[in-house]
Design a protein around this nucleic acid. Sequence first.
RNA 1: GGCGCUAUAGCCAAGUGGUAAGGCGUGGGUCUGCAACACCCUGAUCCCCAGUUCAAAUCUGGGUGGCGCCUCCA
Length: 465
Amino acid sequence: MKIYNTLTAQKEDFKPINEGKVGVYVCGPTVYNYIHIGNARPICVFDVFRRYLEFKGYETKFIQNYTDVNDKIIKQAEKENSTPEEIALKYINEYEKDAKGLNVRPADIQPKVSLYMNQIIDMIKTLVEKGFAYEVNGDVYYRTRKFEGYGKLSKQSLDDLISGARVEVNSIKEDPLDFALWKSAGADEQHWDSPWGKGRPGWHIECSAMAKDCMGDTIDIHCGGKDLVFPHHENEVAQSEASTGKTFSNYWMHNGHINIDNKKMSKSAGNFFLTRDVAEKYGYETIRYLMIQAHYRMPMNYTAELLDSCKTSLERLYNCRETLDRAISAAKNGEITDSAKETFEKRKSQFIDSMDDDLNTADGLTAVFELARELNTMSADSTVSKEQLEAGAVLFDTLTGVLGLLYNRTEQDEIPAEVKELVQKRIDARKAKDFALADTIRDQIAALGYSVKETRQGMEITKTN
RNA sequence: GGCGCUAUAGCCAAGUGGUAAGGCGUGGGUCUGCAACACCCUGAUCCCCAGUUCAAAUCUGGGUGGCGCCUCCA
């Protein structure tokens, strides 16, 4: 599999540290608010990545942290008249609801900054001892000039960074580019004890400390949004590599942004849509589909029209799968034709080729849609055997499963008895050619939140969102 | 100013030098009591200009437009 590595700025063959195993660290949310759909992108995309790695036979270890100690959380606590701890808990909880709605599997380990203070402090101590950090008035700063590779991830030299930097006000730092590892805090604020007095960890050290604790000195792949490349990930590299003397992460994957009116969506800019609000209108799965229909590194402009088309596309896949189920129950036993075997094999390898190419989900979907068309044709052909349809269904489920789609199929036993009765009445009415009554019943069913379609194999009932 | 990304049909979006996948939408048809689903047909001189090549959406150079990072941010 090829992965575009931000560090080398090219696609590279992926080689894990340990044969057959992959460790991935994804920067998780700072929990001070509900997530917006820009936040949802990496969550969905890297979940697909995880599923695909497992499909390829890798044993995966996924780490996604919660940043539950942060100035924004403290601010939000004031706003909600609460405590930072309660705010963090609340939004972790809300995050998990959204993630579940998006069919994102929880990471294997979800470390919280608040529980990693010892490791954070230890790493800062190491950096101070090695001369990569210094203390000033209870703050500790990282000495960027001391770390030779500084800028290697974001491809910027220190001097370039300085020329673009904003003017520093009352700097107590040795260099404008030095960044905080520890910041002193008053006794009345949220704080932890440290060798440098009461305070809180800086913005970047937490990920270095948690990644090391969960994964060891070197991790296979580190993921996150493009905007984290600088300074967050650059600083993580500096901290981790200076303290351990080893490569921090072999591969770096960064997803592109979601724009509104071609401008980056962000909480601070205020031009964002909350995931749950979009989900209420289009369904969570449509959001997941949205993330998959483009390559993860490309920027994406969010529009209502786009969401509409995603929802319709997704329905096409659902229709295919449901038609297939009915065809299977109506089909006779028999052989799988050679041409069908070939078709399935072709679509499978087409899918794999796409996904192997830096997780090209947009191209991977092509294989799924072409398979869908072929399966639709098979479903409509009464000479096609049950075995063949079942083989097609297995493949279809495998591919859509890797993408994490079609997780909301209507189970027949979920359908209320009331609806089932109405459906039977409609069937009777149609038999009696009482179409006016049949249509009335269809409206009644719709009012209950279900839709019925006549098909070759019988009546199909689905839940409307 | 520095670093980087990007430009493909009405919209979304792949594309590894050999004359443009897929989805949505549009229009037409088949099926159907109607509708829906499905199936078939329907659409692109690939931002511009040069160059390399037998051959360029794809490589090179130069433009133009859009975006991001350089400050917390997925």
